[in-house]
């Protein structure tokens, strides 16, 4: 094996790693917003969002009993005619949007032969990659905020009553979670765009990871957990602590998927009645009023681990992309 020279050991490079971050960010943001691809992705998002929202609004208009969180039901109720709610639909569409924005972030620069020219300007690779990521994230945020406002507006028009402050606060919380969720997938797509020179390969890999977590992982986890659980516990005949341990193990594994984290955070935020995201035993419910909503700050406490999990995942994947990008040769 050849000995790799120490990466400028002891000699620090000079100048801020963020030199040039602003221009890269502005260019990426402007490029995304004006691109035909963004139009297509937005149409896709609106189509997938409009269907459940429109149908559940029709149903919600007929509800006569008073519901203090009527507005939030627009997001979460799954109408009878389509089997998924607005949030469930978003948990599928946001990754697609993020992958669409990020899968060719770096390799397209390489293929267009612009990478070496841009890197010969006074800028570190750090700023280029981070600027691209933030540009994509800002685009994602704009798209989601627009969608969110459309839903809010439709709700105002069709329900004929304004949302309460706490509902808006929970809605904004949902928006933040959705952007963080999109950020994870954007980072995944950018990681593949750094690894693979071919944009088709990187798109395919990103979509593969997305499909894996959206479809396969929820099916695989119970099988894996059951395989290592004693038979009597698996049959529901074990001691309480053993059964709890099995359920805990299963949800820990499920939470490795960003989809699970997003789903749990959304449930906690938009269904104020949610008291826990894990198993609950009757003794813990003593004194609780069934169906009573949690205050907003308590809901935030409940979903905090999920939100930090999403953000941490985003940072870890981005860091991986960064490391790979730093080691890459710029020449064709």
């Amino acid at each position: 094996m050849s000995r790799k020279p120490p990466p400028s050991g002891g000699m620090r490079r000079e100048g801020s790693p963020f030199t040039g971050l602003g221009p890269v960010f502005m260019k990426e943001f402007a490029d995304h917003l004006s691109s035909a691809r963004m139009m297509v992705l937005m149409l896709f998002v609106i189509a997938f969002g409009a269907l459940p929202v429109g149908l559940s609004l029709q149903e919600l208009r007929t509800i006569t009993e008073s519901d203090p969180f009527l507005f939030l039901r627009i997001f979460t109720s799954s109408p009878q005619r389509v089997p998924f709610s607005f949030t469930a639909s978003l948990s599928l569409v946001i990754p697609l949007l993020a992958i669409g924005l990020g899968f060719d972030a770096v390799n397209s620069e390489f293929n267009r032969r612009t990478l070496s020219r841009v890197l010969s300007q006074p800028i570190y690779r750090d700023a280029l990659l981070l600027g691209k990521f933030l540009g994509g994230l800002a685009t994602l945020a704009v798209a989601l905020v627009a969608l969110w406002l459309i839903v809010l507006g439709a709700g105002l028009l069709l329900l004929g009553l304004p949302p309460r402050g706490v509902e808006v606060a929970r809605g904004v919380g949902f928006l933040v979670v959705a952007i963080a969720y999109g950020g994870v997938w954007l980072a995944v797509a950018m990681l593949f765009s750094v690894i693979f020179r071919s944009t088709a390969t990187s798109a395919l890999c990103s979509l593969g990871v997305w499909l894996f977590f959206a479809i396969l992982w929820p099916l695989v986890v119970p099988v894996m957990v059951l395989a290592v659980t004693p038979a009597d516990v698996a049959m529901g005949m074990g001691r309480l602590d053993e059964t709890l341990a099995m359920i805990e193990a299963q949800s820990m594994l499920e939470r490795l998927s960003p989809n699970t984290l997003f789903g749990e955070a959304v449930v906690g935020l938009l269904n104020p009645e949610t008291r826990t995201l894990g198993p609950i035993i009757p003794s813990q419910m003593r004194g609780a009023i069934m169906g009573a909503p949690l205050p907003f700050d308590q809901s935030l406490v409940l979903i905090w681990p999920q939100v930090t999990g999403l953000i941490a995942g985003m940072i870890v994947v981005f860091a991986a992309a960064y490391v790979v990008f730093q080691r890459e040769e710029v020449r064709a």
Binding site: R13, T19, R117, Q121, P122
Partner: peptide, 15 residues
């Protein structure tokens, strides 16, 4: 190696 930004500010490159 240590001051790439200073170098790249003053040197034009046509790949």
């Amino acid at each position: 190696v240590r001051q790439p930004l200073e170098v790249k500010r003053r040197v034009g490159y046509l790949p």
